[in-house]
């Protein structure tokens, strides 16, 4: 069982690998089918952002434990142009490219925790968490 996966994002096929990796890990951890889909969709959105705005970047997915709850931490990084105004970017409908402008605010809605650090000219790092919902039978120990 791997506790951390890192994937370089250079082409659209890497988006697929990232989604796959998140599903495999989420299934191991006892996430529900719905939760797996939510995570995979958020990853799909953000890795596509990388391709669209930065050209290339990296995603790391790892298992985390915080007290009694366990979850998945996803970090999406690029060294692209950065986002000048994060507050505006977090509003629905914002987009500088041909996208629908849902990437950032939409992904935030799919995950439990979401934070973003961006510097113009240096790059963007987004950190997200999803916790396994407490259902008594929270999957295997790891």
């Amino acid at each position: 069982m791997t506790d951390e996966v890192c994937i370089r994002i250079k082409a659209d096929i890497d988006i697929m690998s990232a989604r796959h990796a998140s599903r495999t890990m989420a299934a191991e951890m006892g996430f529900s089918n719905l939760e797996m889909t939510l995570i995979a969709t958020a990853i799909s959105e953000l890795t596509r952002n990388i391709l669209q705005y930065a050209g290339h970047g990296e995603i790391s997915i790892c298992k985390v434990q915080q007290g009694n709850r366990k979850g998945m931490k996803v970090v999406v990084m690029d060294e692209g142009p950065g986002i000048p105004d994060i507050e505006t970017a977090m509003h629905d409908g914002y987009s500088t490219s041909k996208g629908l402008g849902l990437g950032l605010p939409g992904s935030k809605r799919l995950m439990d925790e979401f934070s973003i650090v961006s510097k113009v000219g240096i790059g963007t790092t987004i950190t997200m968490y999803k916790w396994v919902s407490n259902k008594g039978s929270g999957g295997e120990e790891w």
Binding site: L100, L102, R109
Partner: peptide, 13 residues
């Protein structure tokens, strides 16, 4: 699929 539909609307699609 159900889960896909739910992820879509949460995303705003």
């Amino acid at each position: 699929q159900p889960d896909v539909a739910l992820a879509m609307v949460r995303l705003g699609l």
